[in-house]
Design a protein around this nucleic acid. Structure first.
Lengths: 351, 351
DNA sequence: GTGAAAGCGCTAACAT
DNA sequence: ATGTTAGCGCTTTCAC
């Protein structure tokens, strides 16, 4: 175990350098308006003492934390099983680094954690929050709101109370779904099935809506609920083949679901795409390119979504000038507004 | 974007309840030694104002943060591609929740991030740190040490300067590897190959040592370096088949590596386990059970490792009584010491 | 049992 | 350009 070194304070550095605390503070924070010889003396003292500013003390007065919370409303197991989050975090991470902000990841796998997360956000540990994977009944938007923490959502939140003015970044789920289904129809398929995502999330609902936009009056047995996991895809596919052995195409709500469906199709001797054409959603490379056959899917730029979320958050932070974020943006009009990113069809072998 | 509510302070609550700040503080922190009617009044005021303590202010005086940093020295893409981390985090998460501590995840994908992580740790945001996936040249142990933050490592750290007294939790990598290789030998295999992990990490080195313990004087061409990823496993397996077409068994440094190796073996028409027997390491269920054929492997209880790391950290925190951790443990003798967990062979179809 | 007051370590006016 | 000083919001002696 590491030793307990009693950390030196500003005071100590000042004493050592023979200057006032204010001067040390100035040097530590960029050294503006301090003459060279003094800067040098202070720097040396800092070095010798191994001084590092106490952030709690600093935040107390500046109201800044240089940290942003990323809240993911899923249990660890799902978060880490789905490459989706990795990509999104990557985008966020890049943007935060550019703003010299720390990324603080909070996973909230269940009701019990919510209180803790709420306390953390309200406790003033972070300048803002990026919240993902919201479910319809989720209290998180409320919590963030009441905590007074500027928040940007990943994916359109379901309409909760205080969510009307929420800023979010989303993909054009409905439009992408329409493209996927039109592609299948264009291939001459008439019995197109849909395995939905977890319908507690707007992305799943939107994709279902897109499916329906094209397949009006579809046989309801051709729609089965999944949950965005491979296992869910397998289950749904089996059910589908049982109920509608004559289906000739499947639109799966995401690539993971499609991969499960493909396994079942192969196991039951259906050839893809000859007998059944399959289209996924996400274009998660490690999944879509590894399936057999490789997956035709709807691409969304997930990393960019993450980057954009962080970027919107910083824009908001600058506007409100919270704490010392006083290099406020030009700030004409209201805060930043939501963004919906386009999707594109990526054709591989499965459809 | 959420609105900016000016957060109420202790002072405000005190005024509203008609008591002193001290009393409010007492109530907020458990209400010991305050009479019932007052407690009630204060509670109501807290409720009405939506008061939440400012953690920066609190930490400034208590020196406690009720938060623990988990530092993973890998880029996001790897962290999220490897179920290993998910499991470990799960164990940690459980233990932290039990201690009502927040988990703050810091990913450090490159040299550039190290400074930021170091500053974060030294800045006094957390009570302790749990550090993973260390590489030999990693400056992280040094940083944590100098930051004066109690730290527990996941996996034996390579011997850096200040690492002599490091506390860590590890699996018996060497012993497990021996078991794996002995199992293969017991199956009558004579040409046993080894695909190593990333040799910059002690776990990979220890497993290689275990392999060598059993296969003394092994043909050096039977050892190929991998990197703990499926792609690395594929690459290594191809090289192995080219150099030693007569090999009849493979011990892969982890399950992910084994899965890559299996793909190549199948593609090249080798039957597993008839022609080539394969053993992995980790017993990562989503991987080991899904391969074709299911993988014989060495199980380590990863979740338990995580739980244990957190548990050791808390024990250390209690001992040092840092800040108000004054319910110090019985504290006889030195701090907690490292733990090495046993492994077990899990037999499936591949060997 | 309750309140008054002294800081925790830092930044930001304000003086000089 | 540098120093002095007043807090930031909270906990914690110490009196009452």
């Amino acid at each position: 175990m590491t030793e307990t070194a009693p950390r030196p304070t500003l005071e100590a550095v000042a004493a050592r350098a023979g200057v006032s605390r204010a001067t040390v503070s100035r040097v530590v924070n960029g050294g503006q308006g301090v003459r060279e010889p003094l800067v040098e003396r202070v720097r040396r003292a800092v070095e010798e003492l191994g001084y590092v500013p106490n952030q709690a003390a600093r935040s107390l007065v500046t109201k800044r934390h240089d940290a942003v919370a990323v809240v993911i409303a899923e249990p660890e197991t799902r978060v880490f099983a789905d490459p989706f989050f990795a990509l999104q975090l990557r985008g966020i991470s890049k943007e935060l680094t550019a703003h010299d902000s720390q990324l603080v990841l909070l996973l909230t796998g269940g009701r019990a954690d919510h209180a803790r997360v709420g306390r953390y956000l309200a406790g003033g540990h972070v300048d803002g929050a990026l919240v993902f994977s919201l479910h319809f009944d989720d209290p998180l938007p409320e919590l963030a709101q009441r905590a007074g923490v500027p928040t940007v959502f990943g994916g359109r939140p379901g309409w909760g109370e205080g969510t009307r003015s929420a800023v979010y970044v989303d993909s054009d789920n409905r439009g992408g779904a329409r493209d996927a289904v039109r592609h299948l129809v264009g291939l001459g398929r008439g019995r197109v099935a849909h395995i939905t995502g977890a319908l507690g999330q707007t992305s799943a609902v939107d994709r279902l809506d897109g499916f329906r936009d094209v397949m009006v009056d579809v046989d309801p047995r051709l729609i089965v609920e999944g949950d965005f996991t491979p296992a869910g895809g397998e289950r749904a596919m089996r059910l589908l083949l049982e109920r509608c052995p004559d289906l000739d195409a499947v639109f799966a709500a995401n690539d993971l679901t499609a991969s499960g469906a493909l396994r079942v199709l192969r196991a039951q001797g259906r050839r893809v795409p000859e007998d059944v054409a399959v289209v996924g959603f996400d274009d998660m490379l490690p999944v879509a390119e590894q399936t057999d056959p490789p997956l035709t899917t709807i691409r969304q730029d997930i990393e960019e979504m993450g980057r954009l979320m962080a970027s919107l958050l910083f824009r908001a932070l600058e506007r409100r000038g919270g704490g010392s974020y006083r290099d406020a943006g030009s700030g004409v009009g209201g805060g930043p507004s939501s963004v919906v990113l386009p999707t594109t069809l990526v054709r591989r072998a499965s459809a």
